[in-house]
Structures are given as C-alpha cells and as structure tokens.
Simulated scan of single mutants.
Amino acid sequence: FERKGRPKITKPILFQILLCSLTGATGNQVFYYVGLKYSSPTIACALTNVLPAATFLLALLFRQESVGIRTTPGAAKVMGTVVCVGGAMLLSFYHGQTINLGESGIHWKYAEMMRGGSSSSQGGSAIWGSLYLIISSVAWAAWFVIQARVNSQFPAPYTSTAIMTFMATIQCGAIAVGIEHNTAAAWSLKSPIRLVGALYAVSLFLLQLTFS
C-alpha cells in the first residue's frame, strides 16, 4: 500500500523508530510480563490505568500538550491525572481484608497453580512487580509520544510498524536468549496455554499497533 507514496527513510526517522521499538514493544512487554509474574492479574489491570496519566505528563513535558490550569478543561486534566494515578496506586499497594465471594464451580488447574504461586510473591516481590508494571506503562506512554512525532514526519504507518516490530523481535530475542539458558524448555509451545497465550499476545499487540 505504501510502496509508491512513502517518504524516504532517513537516519533520524530510523532512530525514532528504534526508540519506538525500545519503548512501545520491548520495554512495554518485557516489564509488563515480569511485573505480572511478581504481582497478580488484578494489580496488572489496575496499574494499566496509569497509562493515560503517564501519556499526558510526557506529552506535557515534550510540549505536545498544554494544561491551561486556570481553565475548566485544564483543571479537569490535572484532576483526572491525580485521580487516575492515585486510584491505581491505592488498589495496587493497599492490602485490606479479603472479600470472600464464595467458591467457584469452575476449577482450572492452571489458574489454581498460578494462585498458589502468587501467595509467595507478597512483600518485596509484590512491590517490585508493581514498579515493573508502572515502568511498563511509562514505556508505553513514551511510545505514544514518540510515535506521534514519527507519524508527523514519516506518514507511512505500515512501513514504520513493520520496521519497529522487526527491531523489537531482535531485541526481545536477544533478551530471551540472554536470560533463558534452557532455550528448549522456554521456547516450547507444547503446552496449550502457552500456545494460546503466545497467539493472543501477538494478535493483541498487532491490533494495538494498527488502531493506535
């Protein structure tokens, strides 16, 4: 689609696409999955709500957004940011009494194993998990800011997305090889949940890139 009308790929554009791959693809996904490992799905969902606030703050820092705090829209932006971040922090770091909703009739062995392993992630590991999830949201927000500049200077979204995912594949592959020494077991998709999870992650990521 963009073969005939896309602009020339210059070194500055290529560098910005590299930054997009490091933030929106590699940094976002790696920190998210590590944070999910050391926390829980509930905390991960809660801290994802930091994304709009982080995007607003970074856009403000790089002068892509204005506040106008004395105006009603500006005050609403600031108040929304405070409520968004505060609510996510409260839900993630405050541990109150457990609300018993009763036993479920659905017994999924994999989910029970995950729930049993999450009890050992309380304390320091849970805090680190939350911090990793916050870093993931900040990296994703940085991708929005950089990608907006790439789109304005290089209006060929399919080409930039293809280059970015290619770079991210190399980056994530290098990280996986460096961390997972038992590559045969780590890369095996014999388990149905691993196969479904991999396909879901890839399809979700491509959908996010397409509609962002």
Rank of each mutant, 00 (worst) to 15 (best):
A53M: 12
V78P: 09
S92E: 06
E103Q: 12
S104H: 11
A54K: 04
A126H: 13
V82W: 01
T210I: 12
I170Q: 02
A126P: 00
R149S: 13
G35A: 05
L209S: 13
S191W: 00
A141S: 15
W128L: 14
Y32E: 07
Y38L: 14
P73Y: 06
S130F: 00
P155A: 09
I170C: 05
E103T: 11
N49E: 07
T10C: 02
A201G: 08
G86A: 15
L57N: 01
S40D: 08
R6I: 00
K190M: 02
A185F: 01
A75N: 03
R115M: 10
Q122A: 08
Y158H: 11
S40K: 01
S188V: 01
L18Q: 10
A25S: 14
L61F: 13
I135T: 10
F15E: 07
I163R: 07
P73A: 10
S121L: 09
M113T: 09
R70K: 13
L204H: 08
A25H: 10
T183G: 03
L14G: 08
T165S: 09
C45H: 02
A176I: 04
W140L: 12
K8H: 05
P41Q: 04
Y94C: 07
C84M: 15
L36T: 06
S136I: 13
E65R: 11
L204D: 06
E65Q: 13
V145M: 03
H95D: 07
A44V: 06
A185Y: 00
L204M: 14
V202D: 04
A168N: 11
F1H: 06
A176R: 00
E103G: 08
A46D: 03
P12I: 05
N100E: 13
E65P: 07
T10F: 04
L22Y: 05
A168Q: 11
R194I: 04
A111K: 06
W143F: 15
T165N: 14
R194E: 10
M114V: 13
Y38N: 06
P155C: 09
Q122P: 00
M89T: 10
N182Y: 02
W128S: 07
M167V: 12
V30D: 05
G5D: 11
I17N: 10
T72L: 14
P73D: 09
L57E: 00
A198E: 01
S39M: 04
S66N: 10
V150H: 10
V138K: 00
Q171N: 11
M164V: 05
I9H: 08
L47W: 08
Q122V: 08
G116T: 04
T183Q: 13
G129E: 04
V85A: 02
I135G: 13
L133Q: 05
Y200V: 13
L58P: 01
G124E: 05
K11D: 05
T159L: 15
A139R: 03
S188H: 02
V82M: 09
A174N: 02
